[in-house]
Computed example of a mutant assay.
Amino acid sequence: MSHSEEPAFNAPPVTLFLVASIIVSHILLTVADQETINWIYGALAFDVGQVERLLNGAAGASLIQFLVTLNTHMILHHDFMHMLVNAFMLLAFGSMVERTFGPVRFVIVFLVAGWVGAILEALVSMPVTEPSLLYGASGGVFGTMGVTTLLMLPKFGLRGVVSFAAVLMGVNLVIGLTPLGALLAGEGATISWAAHVGGYVTGLLFAIWFLSRLARRP
């Protein structure tokens, strides 16, 4: 009888840490009082109108808040299902990115994709006529999905990869641009299709860069 030393659950450490952080943060919020929850979302979620105010030099625009919330908004989620879906996809796609390119590049992809997604959401929302907050790890998650798309190329071929990307973006746009998105997101929330697209394209570009550097190595 052979004995395998391979653990049954062997997600790479940085991916596992991020997923655990997302889950633990959401659990802590579920036991907080409503005043605390409102303060945390108001302080750490990404204010979609902040970009427009910064570009216009409006009073009250804060560059520091903008830079901070570009990162902190990715740890917050709307409800348990929103958190669970992002955590599961990050575990699946983030693990592949970290195993292939290492933890540093994985973190870079996740963060930059989240930044680009948030900023793109702000740009397509202009002019912002009412307060709007963006939160969730979806931009970063879609970045890891973009990288994984190119990693699947040798196995599934160009047609398979293009079909996967087309279906993914098609579903994303349908959900984000129709009443179906509001129905799935729940009362008072919508699904940010622009943040998903921005994150995904960012991941694709990073994958092209990473793979081209690997190809040039002797």
Rank of each mutant, 00 (worst) to 15 (best):
P103M: 10
N10V: 06
E6R: 15
R99A: 11
E35G: 15
V116K: 02
L173I: 11
L204E: 09
P127L: 03
I119E: 08
L205Y: 09
M96H: 05
V85D: 03
V201L: 13
V24K: 02
A122P: 03
F66E: 12
A8G: 12
Y200F: 15
G170R: 05
V162I: 14
L133R: 10
L55M: 14
F142I: 02
R216N: 12
A32E: 11
G181N: 08
V51F: 14
A87T: 06
K155E: 14
L90Q: 00
Q50W: 05
A215V: 11
N56V: 14
I175T: 11
F156P: 06
V51G: 12
S4G: 06
L111K: 02
L54A: 03
G94T: 00
P7A: 10
F9I: 13
E130H: 12
F93V: 00
G199C: 05
R213I: 06
G181L: 10
F106K: 01
N38P: 11
G160A: 08
I22F: 08
G203T: 03
P103N: 09
A137T: 01
L55G: 14
Q34W: 09
A11H: 04
F110A: 01
V31K: 13
A43S: 13
R53T: 04
G49V: 04
L120T: 06
D79Y: 05
I23Q: 01
T178H: 09
A165N: 08
F156T: 14
L173H: 05
A165I: 10
A166N: 10
L180F: 13
T178R: 10
A185H: 08
V109N: 05
F9C: 04
F206H: 05
M89Q: 00
T149W: 11
A118N: 09
T148D: 00
L63N: 04
A87D: 05
I75V: 14
T149R: 11
H3N: 15
G94H: 00
P7S: 12
A194I: 06
M89K: 00
L90N: 00
W115T: 07
T72P: 07
I64T: 13
G203E: 01
F210V: 08
A113P: 06
H78G: 13
S4Y: 02
V174L: 14
G136A: 01
L205D: 05
G114Q: 03
H82Q: 02
E6G: 08
L16K: 07
V161P: 08
F106G: 03
P179W: 07
A166W: 07
E35Q: 14
T69A: 07
V107T: 12
F88C: 03
L204R: 04
G186S: 07
N10W: 12
S132N: 15
L173S: 11
R53L: 11
V19K: 01
V147H: 03
V124Q: 10
Y41M: 11
R99H: 06
V167I: 12
A87S: 12
S163W: 13
L91E: 00
H3P: 13
F110H: 03
E52M: 07
A195F: 04
V116L: 11
I40H: 01
E121T: 14
N172V: 15
R99D: 04
G117K: 02
E35K: 13
I23H: 00
T100A: 15
G176L: 09
S25V: 10
G114T: 07
G146E: 02
I191W: 12
T148Y: 04
P154I: 07
V161K: 08
M74I: 01
L153M: 07
